[in-house]
């Protein structure tokens, strides 16, 4: 416990320090990475810890983002309450999706989540009058103010992203060390046995879906707040595939894996985009290689070889 707490607090401290050390170009990148890593950590609760593979997490990200964005622009809420509405929307959405999708298992579960997510995307397009469809809408700088802080300012944005990231990271660390986290892992490992030890498997899975969707929605809402843009592309299939990719790459079922995977992919795509705009090719190749050769991802390998204690 000591070691793992040191590791995770150390990571937060390092990111804190980077704000002062790293060149300006990386500030924007890192802020984005921390928000997206929070998205991936949310995904990891379901996929990495409970063994539920969703192909529709873009919907939670988007519902959080639109819940925030629409309530700020349409209802005129200030950014704090709007952020709260975003999170609440994602919570309700994940509860409904969980109640329905958990009636299925395996491949059917994957397809159902994909279809629900696609429905959300099409709904956003259909109500183009309010959502501005494909184009999306901008959240004005004058709206993105809280406690006298300007969230569009690069430094403030960095620290806000770090705050979200730290809360999610430590929250998940606490979760996986808690009795509930232990049961989620048990369900992933052997559902039948978990049931025969007296655990209500269905209820735990539902809890995992709701926690996962809500965290992912919070990341979506934060993305809208910090980068000032809300768009339908965030509800499309690639944004369901990204968290899967980041988690697989960094290590499913590890607390820092999603961050490592997000960081790695971001800079890989950043580098490859100087060579070609077909950057999704890199995504494709890495997905295939990961499934074939490194199922446990980078941190999974670290855990196997060097650090069995890694949570």
């Amino acid at each position: 416990m000591r070691k793992s707490l040191t590791l995770h607090l150390g990571l937060i401290a390092l990111l804190f320090a980077l704000q002062f050390i790293a060149p300006a170009y990386h500030h924007g990148n890192l802020a984005r990475i921390m928000v997206m890593a929070s998205f991936a950590m949310g995904y990891n609760i379901m996929f990495g810890y409970t063994g539920l593979l969703s192909l529709g997490h873009a919907m939670f990200f988007a519902v959080g983002m639109y819940g925030m964005g629409l309530s700020a622009t349409q209802l005129g809420l200030s950014i704090g309450p709007a952020f709260g509405v975003g999170i609440l929307s994602a919570l309700i959405c994940s509860l409904i999706v969980g109640l329905l999708a958990l009636r299925t298992i395996g491949v059917a579960f994957m397809i159902v989540t994909l279809m629900f997510s696609q429905t959300i995307f099409l709904t956003i397009l259909y109500f183009g009058g309010i959502t501005r469809g494909d184009e999306g809408f901008v959240i004005k700088q004058s709206t993105r103010q809280i406690f006298g802080l300007d969230l569009s300012d690069a430094t403030t944005r960095y620290f806000a992203a770090l705050l979200l990231f730290s809360l999610v990271l430590l929250g998940i660390l606490w979760l996986v060390k808690s009795p509930t986290g232990r049961v989620l892992i048990a369900i992933r490992e052997n559902e039948e046995r978990a049931k025969m030890l007296g655990y209500d498997v269905w209820r735990h899975k539902l809890a995992a879906v709701v926690m996962s969707g809500t965290v992912s929605g919070a990341a979506g809402a934060a993305y809208g707040v910090l980068f000032g843009y809300v768009g339908a592309s965030f509800s499309q299939v690639p944004y369901s595939i990204f968290p899967l990719l980041w988690v697989l790459l960094g290590g499913a079922g590890t607390v820092i894996g999603p961050f490592v995977g997000t960081l790695f992919m971001f800079y890989l795509i950043d580098l490859s985009s100087t060579v070609t705009d077909a950057y999704m090719l890199v995504v494709g190749v890495i997905l295939v290689l990961l499934t074939m050769f490194a199922r446990n991802g980078l941190m999974g390998i670290v855990r196997e070889r060097w650090a069995k204690w890694l949570p």
């Binding site: 048990a186 490992e189 049931k195 007296g198 655990y199 498997v201």
Partner: peptide, 21 residues
């Protein structure tokens, strides 16, 4: 799971443990 919670326990004929834990 409710019966188990009432005080039953069942050990499997075909070993069923959490292999990776």
């Amino acid at each position: 799971h409710k019966r188990i919670s009432m005080g039953m326990a069942y050990t499997f004929q075909i070993t069923s443990i959490f292999d990776d834990l």
